[in-house]
Amino acid sequence: MHTVWKGAISFGLVHVPVKMFTATEDKDIHFRQIHKACGMPISYAKTCPHCEQEVKPEDIAKGFEYEKGKFVLFNEEELEAIKPEAARVIQILDFVNLTDIDPLYFQKAYYLSPDMAGAGAYNLLLEAIRQTGKIGIAKISIRSKSSLAAVRVVGNCLCMETMHYPDEIRSLSQVPNLPEQIHVNEKELQMAKALIEQLSESFNPEKYTDDYRAAMLDAIQQKIAGESVDMVSAPTAGRSNVIDLMAALQASLEAAKIPPAAPKKRKSPAKKAKDVVS
């Protein structure tokens, strides 16, 4: 794997030299735009609409638009000077429980490996996090962006996940049509809970595949072989025209082969009295 960052994890006075590797990879199928007439890829030149000419990379600066059409410019030296002194340090600020963090905060995962002579400190931090069941909340700067991060253990590896800052999370008040109060039918709720229980199992990521990507790769191979791509869409399995919610729940339970929970029978007053006497 390619090293994307080198630095150290710092907690208290402990310094752990590490290398960082991207933990995930993009397997999306990317298309290029092609000129139909000759089959060549279309290039995108950077041009200035005012000068009406192509601009070379060395003539491009970074600018922030503070008003419509007005920019302040920064060169690379100025941007480097603004970077925090601890740009090469994953500074752990606190240790918290993983369950305290909403997954909404997480961005991208990275693997951390020990660098140089840091194996002893690396192993110490890894095992201490594992045995306490905590994760470290840290700050880090990657590619000119400061991020919060969570440092946790995956197998025998320290894993760091960048996180959004709180002000980057949009408020739920901006989401339209959310209910002010939750009102549900009790019988429907019990059936929905029964269905969830029936469909619940341990998480096994190997069972999930990208069906669209597989179909696209098959289509690409057909094109390479000079074959036409089958345009007939497969029908969605198990789909019905059930509109009524209760009927949909009932059909789902039957498909999952679970009998709906029978309502509890209430004891008659005479039966209760007999139970008390006995």
Rank of each mutant, 00 (worst) to 15 (best):
Asp100Glu: 11
Ala87Gln: 10
Ala61Pro: 01
Leu79Arg: 07
Ala119Asp: 05
Leu158Tyr: 06
Lys108His: 05
Ile142Asp: 00
Lys68Ser: 08
Ala138Glu: 00
Gly136Pro: 02
Phe74Glu: 03
Ala149Leu: 02
Tyr165Met: 07
Glu65Pro: 02
Ile182Glu: 02
Phe74Leu: 14
Ala121Ile: 07
Phe106Asp: 02
Asn177Trp: 14
Gly63Glu: 11
His164Gln: 12
His183Gln: 09
Ser144Glu: 14
Phe95Val: 10
His164Leu: 15
Tyr110Arg: 05
Gly120Cys: 06
Ala86Phe: 13
Glu127Pro: 07
Gly136Lys: 00
Gln181Asp: 13
Asn123Met: 08
Tyr111Met: 05
Phe64Thr: 00
Phe71Thr: 11
Ile129Tyr: 11
Glu161Gln: 03
Asp102Ala: 02
Met116Leu: 13
Glu78Arg: 04
Ile60Gly: 06
Gln174Leu: 15
Met116Ser: 09
Gln181Arg: 14
Glu127Ala: 12
Ala128Met: 12
Ala138Pro: 02
Asn75Ile: 08
Pro179Met: 08
Gly155Ser: 03
Ala117Val: 12
Lys139Val: 12
Gln131Trp: 15
Lys145Asn: 07
Glu161Pro: 01
Asn97Ala: 07
Ile140Cys: 00
Gly118Arg: 06
Phe64Ile: 04
Arg130His: 08
Gly136Cys: 02
Lys62Ala: 03
Ala150Phe: 04
Pro84Ala: 06
Asn75Arg: 05
Val96Gly: 01
Pro103Ile: 08
Gln107Asn: 09
Ala117Trp: 10
